[in-house]
Amino acid sequence: MSVDIQFDLGAHLKQKVSEGRKLVVPYLTCGLPSPGEFVDLYVKLAESADAIEVGIPFSDPVMDGPVIQEASVRALEAGVTVDGCLGLIAEALKRTSTPAVVMTYYNPVHSAGLETFAEKAAAAGVSGLIVPDLPYEECAELDQALKDKGLALIQLVAPTTPAERASMLAAASRGWVYVVSRMGVTGLQDSLASASAEVVDRVKPHTDLPVLVGVGISTGELAGEACRVADGVIVGTAVVKRVLEDDLPGVVSLISSMREAVNPS
């Protein structure tokens, strides 16, 4: 299942942005609604998505709201494992070239061993990693292990991050810079916090990577609003909610409508 690993996520996405494209990155909890349907959904979404964030479930996801918690519980109860998830991603990547970014908490990575995890993720064709409970101060070892395998470690910037720190995080990030739109865990929201535009503005001068906004982007309207300043959006809960409801056509149409909202044709 060896896939080309000499792939630079940041350069790939930067190229798209330079062509005037806004980026749409849906989030899927790995293995849902079933392993086979997950792979099919990945491939289907890849037609309109620029990258796909794949959540490897963790038993204690403190950055996630009720919907993604529920998805994590279901996936773990169905017997999903770290190796199993990487296997499913590798399968999907045989059928599409849309890059996969893994989102997981630090303990499963730590438990596997940082080098081992990086090696397995690279072999599966994964392009980058988001670890929401691993702040900059603790990330040096993993950052190096991933770099050695050509994978990006994506840094998150929050509304409470002071300006000086935001510039440091932006400069350290690879792949893209993840701006957390609001103070809170993942979930749906009706309006975009004005803080998110300010954070994007704070970050932009310090990176040439795409700046993506995530957490609470649940409609095409919000995605369009976020993309007035940002280079793209990450859509998690709104996708996973539909997956949990077994509404897979709804997931596909949501992502198409977001695509349309951020880059009106």
Binding site: Y106, P135, E138, A158, T160, R165, V180, M183
Partner: peptide, 9 residues
């Protein structure tokens, strides 16, 4: 200190 960036400040 293994927490989300939102709590660092």
């Amino acid at each position: 200190v293994f927490v989300p960036e939102s709590l660092m400040e």
